[in-house]
Amino acid sequence: MPTGVALREVRKLLFDAAERVLLRDGPSGLTSRAVTTEAGCAKGVLHRHFPDFDAFLAEFVLDRAQRMDEQAAALRHAAGTGTVAGNLTDALTALFRSVAVAIVPLVTYRDELRARLRTAWPAGVPVLTEACTMIASYLAAERDLGRIAPEADVEALAPMLIGTAHLMFADRTGTPPEAEAVRAMVDSIIGGVLRDTQG
Rank of each mutant, 00 (worst) to 15 (best):
P2I: 06
T3E: 13
T3H: 06
G4L: 14
V5W: 06
L7H: 09
R8T: 13
R11P: 08
L13T: 12
L13G: 07
D16H: 10
A18D: 12
E19P: 02
R20H: 11
L23G: 13
P27G: 02
P27T: 03
G29T: 03
T37M: 13
A39D: 09
A39P: 13
A39W: 07
G40T: 11
A42P: 10
A42K: 12
K43M: 12
K43Q: 15
G44K: 02
V45G: 09
L46F: 11
H47V: 06
R48Q: 12
R48L: 15
P51V: 12
P51Y: 06
A55L: 01
A55T: 14
F56G: 04
F56T: 03
F60L: 11
V61C: 00
V61W: 05
D63W: 08
A65V: 04
A65F: 01
A65D: 11
M68S: 10
M68E: 10
A72G: 13
A73Y: 03
A74E: 14
A74Y: 02
R76M: 13
R76S: 15
H77M: 09
G80D: 11
G80R: 06
T81K: 14
G82I: 09
G82T: 08
V84A: 09
A85F: 03
N87S: 14
T89F: 04
T93L: 05
F96H: 03
I103F: 05
P105D: 05
P105K: 02
T108M: 15
T108I: 12
R110T: 05
E112W: 04
L113T: 07
R114H: 08
A115Y: 08
A115V: 10
L117I: 00
T119K: 14
A120C: 06
W121K: 10
P122L: 09
P122N: 07
A123I: 12
A123R: 12
V127W: 11
L128E: 10
T129R: 11
T129Y: 06
E130P: 05
E130H: 09
A131I: 05
A131R: 01
C132G: 13
A136F: 03
S137I: 06
S137V: 12
S137E: 15
Y138I: 09
L139H: 01
L139I: 06
A141M: 06
R143I: 01
R143E: 00
L145G: 08
L145D: 02
A149M: 02
A149W: 03
P150S: 14
E151Y: 12
E151R: 09
A152D: 08
M160E: 15
L161Y: 00
G163C: 06
A165V: 04
A165L: 02
H166S: 12
L167H: 05
L167Q: 07
M168Y: 10
F169I: 01
A170E: 13
R172V: 08
R172M: 09
T173A: 15
T173V: 13
G174K: 08
G174W: 11
G174C: 03
T175A: 14
E178P: 01
V182A: 07
V182G: 00
R183H: 14
M185H: 04
D187Y: 01
D187F: 03
I189V: 15
I190M: 05
G192S: 14
V193W: 11
D196C: 02
D196R: 11
T197W: 09
T197V: 15
